[in-house]
Every structure is written in C-alpha cells, then in structure tokens.
Amino acid sequence: MRGPTGDGTALTAHVWASVPDTLLGTLVEWDFRHLLDGITKDYDHVLTELEYITARIESS
C-alpha cells in the first residue's frame, strides 16, 4: 500500500466502542480491556480488514 506521501492513498480506520455509564458497563469495559485483551484484538482485526480491502483495491 502506498503511503500518504502524495503518490497514493492512505486507508485508515478509527476503532471505538461505547458502553453505558453504569456499574455493569464499567465492569464489562474492564473485562474487555484487561481479561479479554479486546483492544489489541480489535486493532489486529481492523488491520486484517484494511489489508484485505487494500489488496482488493490494488488488484482492480
């Protein structure tokens, strides 16, 4: 994939999630972050999606 140096297009994604501002929401968010390592897994998944989309765009 070409970088944002003027010779191509950069494909990016913004990862976010929202949980209710309640005790249950706080517990779910803590579990997601610390027990499931959810943030790292989300970023890994998004990178896989961006690589797939990039390959599809560049092959057409």
Rank of each mutant, 00 (worst) to 15 (best):
L47P: 00
L11V: 08
I53C: 06
D37R: 00
Y52L: 00
G3K: 08
T5H: 10
T54S: 12
G38I: 07
D42C: 05
L27H: 13
L35M: 00
H45M: 05
D44N: 06
V46C: 04
I53Q: 04
R33A: 07
T54G: 06
S59N: 15
D44S: 08
R56C: 03
R56P: 02
Y43S: 00
E49L: 15
V46N: 04
E49R: 02
L24R: 10
K41Q: 11
M1L: 08
I53H: 03
T5P: 02
K41T: 03
G38A: 09
S59R: 15
I53R: 08
V28Q: 11
A17T: 15
A55D: 13
E58N: 12
V28Y: 01
P20K: 02
P4G: 12
D21A: 10
V19C: 04
L50K: 02
A10I: 03
E49G: 05
L11G: 01
L27Y: 14
D31T: 08
D42P: 01
T5N: 14
L47A: 11
L50V: 09
E29W: 11
W30V: 11
Y52N: 00
D31N: 13
W16F: 14
S60P: 04
G25A: 01
D21H: 03
R56L: 10
I39P: 09
L23Y: 11
W30D: 15
V15M: 09
D31F: 09
T12S: 10
Y43W: 00
E29G: 11
V28S: 05
